[in-house]
């Protein structure tokens, strides 16, 4: 465990807590893509298949349970909570995310570390996480304005992935046995997807203006 990875995990945790806060505090999920949250729930479930078979550390197990639990809570809220579900932008959140699931699964069948059930689902979850934000970014572009909690949510998600890249660079130089190309390449693709959002986020922060994404 190094500081970059710990910081990355904390940013990831904060991003999910910000989202939960927004939903519980405002009893609204406007501007949030349910499809992205469903993709994240699938990412965590398929990545943490070793939750009950391999014990790595208390921290690792606790964080996995928190990520699965909080994302499941967000998906549940957006679909079943009587008040929250009314504010879901159903007609704007139309990204066909099943294609993302299919494409990532096919890719995982070809590109993986070992051809085992757990490894294929792990690679699938890595690829899916890279593109899971797409429905959310599309929704933000369609809804034009970005309310600051949702903006912070995407910001912290980007920070989490950026720190993970620093973590891989650190591990590459510090550990002789470092081969996590699937995570690295997929993580780079994922962070690149955030880059344009970061650019507009920074502009809005610099001009102290409302974050406005070009349609």
């Amino acid at each position: 465990m190094n500081i970059f990875r710990f910081a990355g995990d904390m940013f990831h945790l904060i991003s999910i807590l910000v989202l939960l806060l927004k939903i519980y505090a405002t009893k609204s999920c406007s501007g949030i893509s349910l499809k992205t949250q469903e993709l994240y729930a699938l990412v965590f479930v398929t990545r943490y298949l070793d939750l009950f078979t391999d014990f790595i550390s208390v921290y690792n197990t606790v964080m996995k349970l928190v990520f699965i639990g909080s994302t499941a809570a967000i998906v549940w809220c957006m679909q079943w909570h009587p008040v929250v579900k009314r504010s879901y932008d159903r007609e704007l959140d139309t990204f066909r995310h099943y294609f993302l699931v299919g494409a990532c699964f096919v890719l995982a069948l070809f590109l993986h570390e070992n051809f085992t059930f757990q490894e294929i689902f792990w690679a699938f979850s890595i690829y899916l996480e890279a593109v899971a934000i797409l429905p959310q970014l599309v929704l933000l572009q369609r809804s034009g304005n970005v309310d600051n909690l949702t903006g912070q949510y995407v910001f912290f998600l980007g920070a989490y992935r950026a720190f993970y890249i620093l973590n891989w660079i650190y591990r590459y130089f510090m550990e002789q046995r470092f081969s996590r190309w699937i995570s690295c390449i997929s993580g780079l693709v994922q962070t690149a997807l955030y880059a344009d959002f970061f650019y507009y986020y920074f502009l809005s922060w610099k001009n102290n203006a409302k974050l406005h994404l070009p349609a």
């Binding site: 995990d9 990831h12 790595i56 550390s57 570390e113 993970y164 996590r180």
Partner: peptide
């Protein structure tokens, strides 16, 4: 501690 573990990252 984590040698040999494939995926110690979250």
């Amino acid at each position: 501690l984590l040698s040999g573990k494939q995926h110690d990252e979250l």
